[in-house]
Amino acid sequence: MAQRQSTGIVIIAFLLSFAAQAGEFSLRYYNNDKYELVKITEVQKTRVTSNCIKNGKPSCKAWSIFLGKPFKVSAQKVPLLGNPAAHYCWDVGAKNRILKADNNEQTDYCVFDDNSMIDSWDLYYKHFPPPPPIK
């Protein structure tokens, strides 16, 4: 009985760990004069590169910045608005890059110097939550 319970727990743990990465998908990232595929996974409704997951848990620079305090948003120099989340990547010490899906839809990711990446808007909205919807 105890053995069955243990086996059940192991199976459940395995399935849960698999489920955590079931949302994995790839995007094209232009780097060093060519496109390379990066694997993206969703952790706590946040999209990060799979290289951020170590021993089943997120552990990378992108994640530590995500969990940390908001940074100051640097001042605008001209009166036309760029993508605020893309700009915020630079404020947190990363660079913003546009990644492309198979259907060519584009998404911004903050790329950190440890090669971890996080969806720029996931980061931005974590630090600066949007207002609630109008009722």
């Binding site: 948003v73 640097s74 001042a75 605008q76 120099k77 001209v78 605020p84 915020y88 600066f128």
Partner: peptide, 13 residues
């Protein structure tokens, strides 16, 4: 012609 980004007002746009 333009030179960019979110302003310091922009915790929210």
């Amino acid at each position: 012609f333009c030179f960019f980004l979110a302003s310091n007002c922009y915790a929210q746009f």
